[in-house]
């Protein structure tokens, strides 16, 4: 708990920096808008203003500074604008509406969770196979490790289009990208975890004349749980990124990725920013959920740190 104050300090610093950065980022836009109204701006000529630096322009026209926070289409929206946009699109509209971030969030989240479930189940199965079969260990494990160095996400557009060509659309292609991204961290983590019992513990089980199956259920699987949770936390955030990127190349109409694209293409930066923050909040909530599950589970298993 003693890190609450330092964390709040850092967050306050970031917010403060952001708030200050709004002025130089938006001052040219705000000055143009002010000049179109009846406010006198120095220098008055629009082309001359482009020549002036952002800070000089802000110092020359202190009256315009408040306007930098209220632009409709800012280069950098103020924190309060993002909060208002988030509030408007989460709480102020019906969850079924096309404008609601809850609706878009659910589209992305359902693909994320489906893919994460598939990837985790397959990853655990493969890890068990690798631990129990030396042949699989020798032939598959190097590829599982090497695949971590490959930017798998580059495959996303192709998976979407190819699956669309054979008639599979909507949730499943995105879920497959998510599954792919969460698969390898789970394999690598679980293999490490299932192998974590040391020789002494394995020997003890042998003196009890326990078979491989009993050794798996009573020793290896429980021992792997901390490793599994570490992998799950990496996997769930990778899954969310996968689902979002999966929405980009096809011009999907729903989901966080689609909102980011819409905001980008139709010049509505607030929509992009709100979608970005909503995605960040979702990721934080998912990772937090697994951290909580981890703490509860490890405590009940008597492994709490």
């Amino acid at each position: 708990m003693k890190s609450v104050l330092p964390v709040l300090t850092i967050v306050a610093f970031i917010l403060g920096f952001w708030t200050l950065a709004v002025v130089p980022m938006n001052i040219h836009l705000a000055a143009d808008q002010a000049a179109r109204g009846d406010i006198v701006v120095e220098p008055a000529d629009a082309r001359a203003r482009q020549e002036v630096g952002a800070f000089a322009l802000a110092l020359g026209n202190p009256a315009v500074i408040p306007m930098t926070y209220t632009l409709d289409r800012p280069r950098l929206p103020g924190p309060q604008q993002v909060v208002v946009e988030l509030w408007n699109t989460i709480f102020a509209v019906a969850p079924t509406s096309n404008r609601s971030l809850i609706y878009h969030g659910w589209v992305t989240l359902s693909a994320t969770l489906l893919g994460f479930g598939m990837g985790t189940a397959l990853g655990i199965a493969l890890a068990v196979g690798i631990v129990f079969s030396r042949t699989m260990d020798l032939s598959v494990m190097p590829w599982a490790i090497a695949s971590q160095t490959i930017p798998i996400l580059a495959l996303a557009p192709m998976i979407i289009v190819v699956m669309g060509a054979i008639g599979i659309q909507g949730l499943l292609p995105k879920a497959i990208i998510s599954a792919y991204l969460s698969f390898f961290p789970v394999v690598v983590g679980m293999v490490k975890g299932l192998r974590s019992p040391d020789t002494m513990q394995l020997d003890l089980l042998r003196t009890y004349s326990a078979g491989p199956a009993q050794g798996f259920w009573k020793l290896r699987l429980p021992a792997s749980v901390p490793y599994l949770f570490a992998s799950l936390k990496i996997g769930i955030s990778a899954s969310l990124v996968g689902a979002i990127v999966g929405e980009l190349p096809t011009g999907a109409r729903a989901g966080f990725g689609a909102r980011m694209l819409v905001g980008d293409q139709y010049g509505q930066p607030l929509v992009t920013w709100a979608a970005l923050f909503a995605a960040a909040i979702t990721a934080a909530a998912l990772v937090g959920l697994f951290a909580l599950l981890e703490r509860v589970t490890l405590k009940r298993m008597g492994m709490a740190a």
Partner: peptide, 16 residues
């Protein structure tokens, strides 16, 4: 302060 905030940011979909 930096350790938890940085760890949190590292998990976010920054590519967005």
């Amino acid at each position: 302060g930096i350790l938890p905030v940085g760890g949190f940011m590292a998990a976010l979909p920054i590519v967005g």
